[in-house]
């Protein structure tokens, strides 16, 4: 464990908690893409099946359980409890255009052709594009609540910190995982446009609205 990975995990945890609290406290999921949240629940489910097979550390297990719990709670709030506030008309990204190619790629490019490894690879590839429905929804509505932009900022920051973590681990441990690195670079690049708007607008107290 290094400071970049720890900060990255805490940033990821912050994002997940911020979103869940925002929906729970405001009793509304307006502006939130339910599709992205379903994809994240799928990412955690397929990646953390090793909860059942191996124990790495208390930290590892605890964080995985929290991530899975919060992501399912968020999906539950959006599609069941607060369904009336779900803005389905703007959450129209065709997720099958993500899941099918990602599923296919996981079969073609992986470290090991075993079920758990294929699912982990699928999860890594899916996570890199899972935010697209949310970014697409913001481009359609033309704006995002400030709390939603903070959620996106921490979510984007987490994988950017993981990139530094991988540089650190390569240099000090000779460890590197090309699949995770390439997917992580793609994932972080997808946030660049948002990061620019976040820094130039939200951090200056303005509302995030498009066109920029």
């Amino acid at each position: 464990m290094n400071i970049f990975r720890l900060t990255g995990d805490l940033s990821h945890l912050a994002a997940i908690i911020i979103l869940l609290l925002k929906i729970w406290k405001s009793r509304s999921c307006a502006g939130i893409s339910g599709k992205s949240q379903v994809l994240f629940a799928l990412v955690f489910t397929t990646r953390y099946l090793d909860l059942l097979t191996s124990f790495i550390s208390l930290y590892n297990t605890t964080m995985k359980v929290i991530y899975i719990g919060c992501s399912y709670a968020t999906v539950y709030l959006i599609y069941m409890k607060l369904k009336a506030t779900y803005d389905g008309n703007h959450d129209t990204f065709r997720v099958e255009f993500l899941i099918v190619p990602v599923g296919g790629l996981a079969f073609l490019v992986n470290h090991d052709f075993s079920p758990l490894e294929i699912l982990w690879t699928f999860s890594i590839y899916l996570e890199s594009v899972a935010i697209l429905p949310q970014l697409f929804m913001i481009s359609k509505t033309g704006e995002a609540e400030t709390i939603t932009t903070h959620y996106l900022f921490f979510l984007g920051l987490y994988r950017a910190l993981y990139l530094i973590n991988w540089i650190w681990r390569f240099y000090f441990e000779g460890f590197f995982d090309m699949i995770a690195i390439v997917a992580g670079v793609v994932q972080t690049i997808l946030y660049c446009d948002f990061f620019y708007l976040y820094v130039t607008k939200v951090l200056k107290g303005k509302k995030l609205s498009l066109p920029a």
Binding site: N60, M63, Y67, H111, W120, N165, M178, A180
Partner: peptide, 10 residues
């Protein structure tokens, strides 16, 4: 395979 078998990252 430069990856450790055990996936220790989240």
């Amino acid at each position: 395979r430069n990856r450790t078998d055990v996936k220790d990252e989240l």
